[in-house]
Protein backbone atom coordinates (compact mmCIF):
# COMPACT_ATOMS: atom_id res chain seq x y z
CA UNK A 1 0.00 0.00 0.00
CA UNK A 2 1.08 3.53 -0.68
CA UNK A 3 2.08 6.60 1.25
CA UNK A 4 -1.42 8.11 1.23
CA UNK A 5 -2.57 5.47 3.70
CA UNK A 6 -4.75 7.39 6.15
CA UNK A 7 -6.96 6.68 9.12
CA UNK A 8 -6.92 4.54 12.22
CA UNK A 9 -8.84 1.25 12.17
CA UNK A 10 -9.69 -0.40 15.49
CA UNK A 11 -10.78 -4.02 15.30
CA UNK A 12 -13.30 -4.73 18.03
CA UNK A 13 -13.28 -7.98 19.95
CA UNK A 14 -16.83 -9.36 19.58
CA UNK A 15 -16.69 -11.29 22.86
CA UNK A 16 -15.88 -8.08 24.67
CA UNK A 17 -18.95 -6.20 23.43
CA UNK A 18 -19.35 -2.60 22.31
CA UNK A 19 -18.93 -1.18 25.80
CA UNK A 20 -16.31 -3.68 27.00
CA UNK A 21 -13.00 -2.89 28.66
CA UNK A 22 -10.87 -3.99 25.68
CA UNK A 23 -13.03 -2.01 23.28
CA UNK A 24 -12.52 1.06 25.45
CA UNK A 25 -8.76 0.52 25.55
CA UNK A 26 -8.34 -0.04 21.82
CA UNK A 27 -10.63 2.85 20.89
CA UNK A 28 -8.92 5.01 23.50
CA UNK A 29 -5.59 4.51 21.73
CA UNK A 30 -7.25 4.92 18.31
CA UNK A 31 -8.92 8.20 19.28
CA UNK A 32 -5.74 9.71 20.74
CA UNK A 33 -3.83 8.76 17.58
CA UNK A 34 -6.67 10.10 15.45
CA UNK A 35 -6.45 13.43 17.26
CA UNK A 36 -2.64 13.58 17.17
CA UNK A 37 -2.41 12.69 13.48
CA UNK A 38 -5.66 14.37 12.46
CA UNK A 39 -6.95 11.16 10.93
CA UNK A 40 -10.41 9.56 11.21
CA UNK A 41 -11.11 6.58 13.46
CA UNK A 42 -13.02 3.57 12.17
CA UNK A 43 -14.24 0.75 14.39
CA UNK A 44 -14.51 -2.58 12.58
CA UNK A 45 -16.82 -5.18 14.09
CA UNK A 46 -16.62 -8.77 12.90
CA UNK A 47 -19.95 -10.57 12.78
CA UNK A 48 -23.35 -9.45 13.90
CA UNK A 49 -22.90 -10.21 17.58
CA UNK A 50 -22.35 -6.54 18.35
CA UNK A 51 -25.79 -5.09 17.74
CA UNK A 52 -25.31 -1.75 19.40
CA UNK A 53 -22.88 0.74 17.88
CA UNK A 54 -23.62 3.76 20.09
CA UNK A 55 -20.86 3.01 22.61
CA UNK A 56 -18.31 2.74 19.78
CA UNK A 57 -19.12 6.30 18.68
CA UNK A 58 -19.07 7.47 22.28
CA UNK A 59 -15.61 5.92 22.75
CA UNK A 60 -14.38 7.91 19.77
CA UNK A 61 -15.13 6.06 16.52
CA UNK A 62 -16.13 8.36 13.65
CA UNK A 63 -17.34 5.45 11.58
CA UNK A 64 -18.40 1.91 12.42
CA UNK A 65 -18.12 -0.84 9.84
CA UNK A 66 -19.98 -4.03 10.56
CA UNK A 67 -18.48 -6.94 8.67
CA UNK A 68 -21.34 -9.32 8.06
CA UNK A 69 -20.92 -12.93 7.02
CA UNK A 70 -22.32 -16.21 8.43
CA UNK A 71 -18.79 -17.55 8.96
CA UNK A 72 -17.96 -14.65 11.25
CA UNK A 73 -20.44 -15.60 13.95
CA UNK A 74 -17.50 -16.77 16.01
CA UNK A 75 -13.80 -16.20 15.46
CA UNK A 76 -12.39 -18.25 12.62
CA UNK A 77 -8.98 -17.03 11.46
CA UNK A 78 -9.43 -17.97 7.80
CA UNK A 79 -12.86 -16.34 7.59
CA UNK A 80 -11.65 -13.23 9.40
CA UNK A 81 -8.69 -12.89 7.02
CA UNK A 82 -10.91 -13.41 3.99
CA UNK A 83 -13.25 -10.69 5.21
CA UNK A 84 -10.68 -8.19 6.43
CA UNK A 85 -8.22 -8.34 3.56
CA UNK A 86 -10.54 -6.66 1.02
CA UNK A 87 -11.90 -4.25 3.63
CA UNK A 88 -8.48 -3.06 4.78
CA UNK A 89 -7.30 -2.75 1.18
CA UNK A 90 -10.35 -0.58 0.41
CA UNK A 91 -9.99 1.57 3.53
CA UNK A 92 -6.21 1.85 3.07
CA UNK A 93 -5.59 2.93 6.68
CA UNK A 94 -2.36 4.15 8.21
CA UNK A 95 -2.78 2.07 11.37
CA UNK A 96 -4.76 -1.06 12.33
CA UNK A 97 -5.13 -1.65 16.07
CA UNK A 98 -6.46 -4.62 17.99
CA UNK A 99 -6.14 -6.11 21.46
CA UNK A 100 -3.45 -8.75 22.03
CA UNK A 101 -6.01 -11.35 23.05
CA UNK A 102 -6.10 -14.92 21.74
CA UNK A 103 -7.94 -13.47 18.74
CA UNK A 104 -5.43 -10.68 18.25
CA UNK A 105 -2.43 -13.01 18.64
CA UNK A 106 -3.71 -15.05 15.69
CA UNK A 107 -5.20 -12.26 13.60
CA UNK A 108 -2.59 -9.49 13.90
CA UNK A 109 0.39 -11.35 12.40
CA UNK A 110 -1.73 -13.25 9.86
CA UNK A 111 -3.41 -10.06 8.61
CA UNK A 112 -0.01 -8.37 8.35
CA UNK A 113 1.41 -11.15 6.21
CA UNK A 114 -1.79 -11.29 4.10
CA UNK A 115 -1.41 -7.54 3.44
CA UNK A 116 2.37 -7.77 3.06
CA UNK A 117 2.97 -5.29 5.80
CA UNK A 118 4.63 -5.25 9.22
CA UNK A 119 3.18 -5.84 12.65
CA UNK A 120 4.26 -5.16 16.22
CA UNK A 121 2.67 -7.51 18.72
CA UNK A 122 1.83 -7.11 22.41
CA UNK A 123 2.76 -3.42 22.53
CA UNK A 124 2.78 -1.79 25.94
CA UNK A 125 3.13 1.80 24.75
CA UNK A 126 3.05 3.81 21.54
CA UNK A 127 3.44 7.37 20.33
CA UNK A 128 3.33 9.16 17.00
CA UNK A 129 6.73 9.39 15.32
CA UNK A 130 8.43 12.74 14.75
CA UNK A 131 6.96 14.70 11.84
CA UNK A 132 4.02 12.33 11.35
CA UNK A 133 6.33 9.42 10.54
CA UNK A 134 5.86 5.82 11.63
CA UNK A 135 4.55 5.18 15.13
CA UNK A 136 7.12 4.44 17.80
CA UNK A 137 5.90 1.17 19.34
CA UNK A 138 7.18 -0.16 22.66
CA UNK A 139 7.34 -3.93 23.11
CA UNK A 140 8.59 -6.00 25.96
CA UNK A 141 11.24 -8.60 25.04
CA UNK A 142 13.03 -11.48 26.77
CA UNK A 143 9.93 -12.02 28.85
CA UNK A 144 9.98 -8.44 30.13
CA UNK A 145 13.60 -7.90 31.13
CA UNK A 146 14.03 -5.45 28.27
CA UNK A 147 11.95 -3.11 26.18
CA UNK A 148 12.31 -2.42 22.48
CA UNK A 149 11.09 0.62 20.58
CA UNK A 150 10.27 -0.45 17.05
CA UNK A 151 8.81 1.15 13.95
CA UNK A 152 6.95 -0.37 11.03
CA UNK A 153 8.08 0.97 7.68
CA UNK A 154 5.20 -0.45 5.64
CA UNK A 155 1.48 0.46 5.66
CA UNK A 156 -0.82 -0.19 7.30
CA UNK A 157 1.05 -0.40 10.57
CA UNK A 158 -0.58 -3.31 12.36
CA UNK A 159 -0.36 -3.18 16.13
CA UNK A 160 -1.68 -5.53 18.81
CA UNK A 161 -2.04 -3.85 22.20
CA UNK A 162 -1.38 -5.59 25.51
CA UNK A 163 -4.63 -5.60 27.50
CA UNK A 164 -4.64 -3.28 30.53
CA UNK A 165 -1.53 -1.44 29.33
CA UNK A 166 -3.44 1.56 27.94
CA UNK A 167 -5.99 3.83 29.62
CA UNK A 168 -9.53 3.20 28.39
CA UNK A 169 -11.40 5.84 26.38
CA UNK A 170 -13.72 8.06 28.39
CA UNK A 171 -17.12 7.89 26.68
CA UNK A 172 -18.55 11.16 25.38
CA UNK A 173 -22.31 10.73 25.89
CA UNK A 174 -24.35 11.53 22.81
CA UNK A 175 -21.36 11.49 20.43
CA UNK A 176 -22.43 9.91 17.14
CA UNK A 177 -20.92 8.93 13.83
CA UNK A 178 -21.77 6.87 10.80
CA UNK A 179 -22.34 3.17 10.43
CA UNK A 180 -22.13 0.95 7.40
CA UNK A 181 -22.13 -2.69 6.53
CA UNK A 182 -19.48 -4.57 4.63
CA UNK A 183 -20.56 -7.88 3.16
CA UNK A 184 -17.42 -9.71 2.11
CA UNK A 185 -17.39 -12.81 0.01
CA UNK A 186 -14.58 -14.81 1.56
CA UNK A 187 -13.42 -17.43 -0.88
CA UNK A 188 -14.81 -20.65 0.67
CA UNK A 189 -11.78 -22.50 -0.66
CA UNK A 190 -9.58 -20.41 1.57
CA UNK A 191 -11.63 -21.13 4.70
CA UNK A 192 -9.69 -24.26 5.45
CA UNK A 193 -10.33 -24.54 9.14
CA UNK A 194 -13.53 -25.08 11.01
CA UNK A 195 -14.25 -24.43 14.68
CA UNK A 196 -16.15 -27.59 15.68
CA UNK A 197 -16.86 -26.61 19.24
CA UNK A 198 -15.76 -24.39 22.06
CA UNK A 199 -15.09 -25.89 25.46
CA UNK A 200 -15.35 -23.44 28.29
CA UNK A 201 -13.10 -24.34 31.19
CA UNK A 202 -12.96 -21.08 33.08
CA UNK A 203 -15.53 -20.95 35.86
CA UNK A 204 -18.79 -19.86 34.27
CA UNK A 205 -19.82 -18.14 37.47
CA UNK A 206 -17.88 -15.96 39.85
CA UNK A 207 -15.51 -13.17 38.89
CA UNK A 208 -13.56 -13.36 35.63
CA UNK A 209 -9.85 -13.31 36.28
CA UNK A 210 -9.36 -10.43 33.83
CA UNK A 211 -12.00 -8.28 35.55
CA UNK A 212 -11.36 -9.20 39.18
CA UNK A 213 -10.62 -6.47 41.71
CA UNK A 214 -8.74 -8.99 43.86
CA UNK A 215 -6.78 -11.98 42.55
CA UNK A 216 -5.13 -14.74 44.58
CA UNK A 217 -2.70 -16.85 42.56
CA UNK A 218 -0.66 -19.89 43.46
CA UNK A 219 2.65 -21.27 42.21
CA UNK A 220 4.98 -24.15 42.69
CA UNK A 221 5.90 -22.96 46.19
CA UNK A 222 2.64 -24.46 47.42
CA UNK A 223 4.35 -27.83 47.23
CA UNK A 224 1.69 -29.83 45.42
CA UNK A 225 -1.85 -29.85 44.06
CA UNK A 226 -3.09 -31.20 47.39
CA UNK A 227 -2.45 -27.73 48.85
CA UNK A 228 -4.31 -25.84 46.13
CA UNK A 229 -7.43 -25.62 48.28
CA UNK A 230 -5.55 -23.12 50.47
CA UNK A 231 -5.47 -20.67 47.54
CA UNK A 232 -9.15 -21.26 46.81
CA UNK A 233 -10.14 -20.76 50.43
CA UNK A 234 -8.26 -17.48 50.69
CA UNK A 235 -9.79 -16.31 47.39
CA UNK A 236 -13.25 -17.26 48.56
CA UNK A 237 -12.82 -15.35 51.83
CA UNK A 238 -11.79 -12.28 49.82
CA UNK A 239 -14.35 -12.67 47.03
CA UNK A 240 -11.33 -12.87 44.73
CA UNK A 241 -10.65 -14.67 41.46
CA UNK A 242 -8.12 -17.51 41.42
CA UNK A 243 -5.10 -17.54 39.12
CA UNK A 244 -1.94 -19.59 38.71
CA UNK A 245 1.63 -19.44 37.50
CA UNK A 246 2.63 -21.33 34.38
CA UNK A 247 4.63 -23.78 36.51
CA UNK A 248 1.45 -25.17 38.02
CA UNK A 249 -0.76 -25.05 34.92
CA UNK A 250 2.03 -26.93 33.09
CA UNK A 251 2.13 -29.43 35.93
CA UNK A 252 -1.61 -29.95 35.48
CA UNK A 253 -2.66 -28.83 38.97
CA UNK A 254 -5.24 -26.44 37.48
CA UNK A 255 -6.59 -25.64 33.98
CA UNK A 256 -4.62 -23.47 31.56
CA UNK A 257 -7.37 -20.85 31.65
CA UNK A 258 -6.07 -19.81 35.09
CA UNK A 259 -2.57 -19.05 33.83
CA UNK A 260 -1.40 -15.48 34.39
CA UNK A 261 1.54 -14.11 32.43
CA UNK A 262 3.06 -13.51 29.05
CA UNK A 263 1.45 -16.54 27.44
CA UNK A 264 -1.63 -16.51 29.67
CA UNK A 265 -3.87 -13.79 30.99
CA UNK A 266 -3.17 -10.15 31.72
CA UNK A 267 -4.86 -8.95 34.88
CA UNK A 268 -5.23 -5.56 36.52
CA UNK A 269 -6.58 -6.06 40.05
CA UNK A 270 -6.32 -3.53 42.84
CA UNK A 271 -4.86 -6.29 44.99
CA UNK A 272 -2.82 -9.24 43.75
CA UNK A 273 -1.77 -11.90 46.25
CA UNK A 274 0.94 -14.16 44.83
CA UNK A 275 1.51 -17.32 46.83
CA UNK A 276 4.59 -19.45 46.20
CA UNK A 277 5.28 -17.66 42.92
CA UNK A 278 8.92 -16.78 42.29
CA UNK A 279 8.17 -13.78 40.06
CA UNK A 280 9.80 -14.66 36.74
CA UNK A 281 9.51 -11.74 34.32
CA UNK A 282 7.26 -13.86 32.11
CA UNK A 283 4.76 -14.07 34.98
CA UNK A 284 5.14 -10.43 35.95
CA UNK A 285 4.31 -9.43 32.35
CA UNK A 286 0.73 -10.48 33.15
CA UNK A 287 0.44 -8.49 36.38
CA UNK A 288 2.22 -5.25 35.58
CA UNK A 289 -1.13 -3.42 35.80
CA UNK A 290 -1.86 -4.74 39.31
CA UNK A 291 -1.99 -1.82 41.76
CA UNK A 292 -0.75 -3.58 44.90
CA UNK A 293 1.11 -6.88 45.04
CA UNK A 294 1.37 -9.01 48.16
CA UNK A 295 3.93 -11.80 47.90
CA UNK A 296 4.10 -14.84 50.12
CA UNK A 297 7.20 -16.93 49.48
CA UNK A 298 9.60 -19.12 51.42
CA UNK A 299 12.61 -17.74 49.61
CA UNK A 300 13.58 -14.27 50.89
CA UNK A 301 15.51 -13.68 47.65
CA UNK A 302 12.56 -14.49 45.36
CA UNK A 303 12.28 -11.95 42.52
CA UNK A 304 8.62 -11.38 43.34
CA UNK A 305 9.63 -9.28 46.36
CA UNK A 306 11.17 -6.72 43.99
CA UNK A 307 7.69 -6.04 42.63
CA UNK A 308 5.70 -6.51 45.82
CA UNK A 309 4.37 -3.75 48.08
CA UNK A 310 4.00 -6.18 50.99
CA UNK A 311 5.99 -9.36 51.49
CA UNK A 312 5.78 -12.32 53.80
CA UNK A 313 8.71 -14.71 53.96
CA UNK A 314 7.28 -18.00 55.05
CA UNK A 315 5.66 -21.28 54.18
CA UNK A 316 2.38 -20.78 52.35
CA UNK A 317 0.96 -23.91 53.98
CA UNK A 318 1.16 -22.20 57.36
CA UNK A 319 0.56 -18.59 56.38
CA UNK A 320 -2.52 -19.12 54.17
CA UNK A 321 -4.84 -20.79 56.71
CA UNK A 322 -4.02 -18.08 59.25
CA UNK A 323 -4.52 -15.35 56.65
CA UNK A 324 -7.85 -16.81 55.52
CA UNK A 325 -9.09 -16.89 59.14
CA UNK A 326 -7.89 -13.35 59.76
CA UNK A 327 -9.57 -12.05 56.62
CA UNK A 328 -12.86 -13.74 57.45
CA UNK A 329 -12.67 -12.11 60.87
CA UNK A 330 -11.89 -8.71 59.39
CA UNK A 331 -14.67 -8.92 56.82
CA UNK A 332 -17.14 -10.21 59.40
CA UNK A 333 -17.50 -13.61 57.76
CA UNK A 334 -16.17 -15.66 60.66
Amino acid sequence: MTAEARGIVAIIEPADGPAGALTAEVLGVARRLGNDLNEPVTAVVLGETVAEVGPLWEFGADKVIRVVHPLLAEFNLDAALGALEPLIRRENPNVVLMAHTFQGRALGPALAFRLQTGVATDCVDLRPGAGGGSLVLTRSILGGNFRAEVVIDTRPQIVTLRPKAFPPAEPTPGRTGTVEEFRPEPDPVRVRQEVRRRIQEAAAEGVRLEDARIVVAGGRGLGGPENWHLVEELASALGAAVGASRAVTDAGWVPTSLQIGLTGKTISPDLYIAVGISGAVQHMAGVSAAKTIVAINKDPDATIFRYARFGVVGDAKQILPALTREIKKALGKA
Binding site: F146, V151, A295, F305, R306, Y307, F310
Partner: peptide
Protein backbone atom coordinates in the same frame (compact mmCIF):
# COMPACT_ATOMS: atom_id res chain seq x y z
CA UNK B 1 9.36 -4.36 7.41
CA UNK B 2 10.16 -3.33 10.97
CA UNK B 3 13.17 -1.62 12.56
CA UNK B 4 14.39 -1.46 16.14
CA UNK B 5 15.07 2.12 17.21
CA UNK B 6 16.18 1.53 20.76
CA UNK B 7 16.47 -1.10 23.47
CA UNK B 8 16.44 -0.39 27.17
CA UNK B 9 15.98 -2.12 30.50
CA UNK B 10 12.89 -0.93 32.39
CA UNK B 11 13.66 0.07 35.96
CA UNK B 12 11.93 -1.73 38.78
CA UNK B 13 11.92 0.19 42.03
CA UNK B 14 11.86 -2.28 44.90
CA UNK B 15 9.72 -0.97 47.76
CA UNK B 16 8.63 -4.09 49.58
CA UNK B 17 7.49 -3.82 53.17
Amino acid sequence: RTRVLRLYAPQVEAKCE
